[in-house]
Design a protein around this nucleic acid. Structure first.
Lengths: 206, 206
DNA sequence: TCACCTAATGACCACATGGTCATTAGGTAG
DNA sequence: CTACCTAATGACCATGTGGTCATTAGGTGA
């Protein structure tokens, strides 16, 4: 975590540093991200950065903490809306996540990179640091669903839903550049996802 | 592609270079991989490497070409075995791929990295170079399946199958370290995958 | 033995990295 | 104005990078 000096800065400077770090770590892997670039982007001296943070890793986890807190806050706001069977829940959850993604692409890319590149030198420390959140949160949300008649083990059904959602998201994001209007994207996303969920619901329910 | 000089080398030296490059690029991203390490691992002089290859990128694509050719050869051998409906085909295909993976972990990791890290500076050139293979191959294999009554659009069903297979593989590989006996792993993989395919077959067929 | 050729080499280059530290700038108290 | 303090700074350091090139080693023919 940052030293006291960092919190004594005026808000503008602090935001400049946070934003610069976020953009850099979203665009490049931990090792490829450059503190020199961050310093330039934030318009501060190189020495200052290492007065505010003990080293690159410290800066990285400060940024990551911040992003995860932001996502958590956003998802908590959606919690009361989660009602219905797991298929409806999945839809509501996916829509919330997708909306967050559309408006926080840098944060989304940072998270994706942080928890998917398991060969990065920082990955081990990352999963260690956040082991209590992560997947468990996903299942907690699903815990909100009404109990319901499934043809199969609940764990397997959840996995199938999770993998389809992940695959669908990845595929959709890749082709999302085509759309220009942001509302078109949201509509199209939801409409297409609904079909997949419909297929699974019909197939996996009693 | 390598210069003529490379092909004039005796087989042992050539293999040392290929292996060293494979291991390095499997372990580290393109930018993080070090030509110095490769040179040391292969026990050749730094200058020699750049006599054989015009630059790092040239070496990288030589290795990648080699791995893709190897995988292609392996899968072609499995082609005659692909018979039945798409669910049976998926199982046979997944088993072949998994066996290849188990015995070619470095090659597998290299491929995974090459086609998943879409932020790497080399990624664009990579997909450009191999755009004719890739996903299309996957669907070609599924083309071997007997036509069969599906409740839904074939494309969506294939996507669901693909995503579940991908998700299952990723999950399985992560916990594969637990097993010591390689045959246990293979058995366990196939057994668990079968259950998922069974679920999907029952759910997605007429 | 000598001259010739080519393949192999590692010292070397310019550049970028994470991190340091002596110096400076700017505000405050007397 | 001076003396003091602290926060900000960028020149600097050791290390590592991809890539080069003058030198060397070793084989061949006369």
């Amino acid at each position: 975590m940052p030293k006291k000096l960092f919190y004594q800065l005026d808000i503008d400077k602090r935001n400049r540093i946070t934003d610069a770090g976020l953009i850099e770590f979203a665009q490049y892997s931990y090792n490829e991200a450059s503190t020199n670039s961050i310093v330039k982007k934030a318009s501060i001296g190189k020495g200052s950065l290492f007065k505010y943070f003990v080293n690159k890793e410290d800066l990285y986890f400060y940024i990551l903490d911040y992003v995860i807190a932001d996502l958590g806050k956003n998802l908590k706001e959606e919690l009361p809306k989660l009602k219905g069977d797991i298929f409806e829940i999945i839809l509501i959850y996916a829509e919330a996540e997708f909306n967050w993604y559309i408006e926080n692409i840098d944060k989304y890319n940072l998270l994706k990179r942080a928890f998917s590149d398991d060969s990065s030198s920082i990955y081990k420390k990352t999963v260690e640091r956040y082991k209590l959140t992560g997947d468990s949160f996903y299942y907690k949300i699903l815990g909100y669903s009404e109990t319901q008649a499934l043809k199969w083990e609940k764990e397997k059904v959840l996995n199938v839903l999770k993998w389809v959602l992940e695959g669908f998201n990845a595929k959709f994001i890749k082709k999302a550049d085509q759309y220009s209007n942001i509302n078109d994207i949201k509509d199209c996303y939801l409409e297409e996802l609904k079909k997949y969920i419909e297929i699974l619901k019909e197939g996996l329910c009693e």
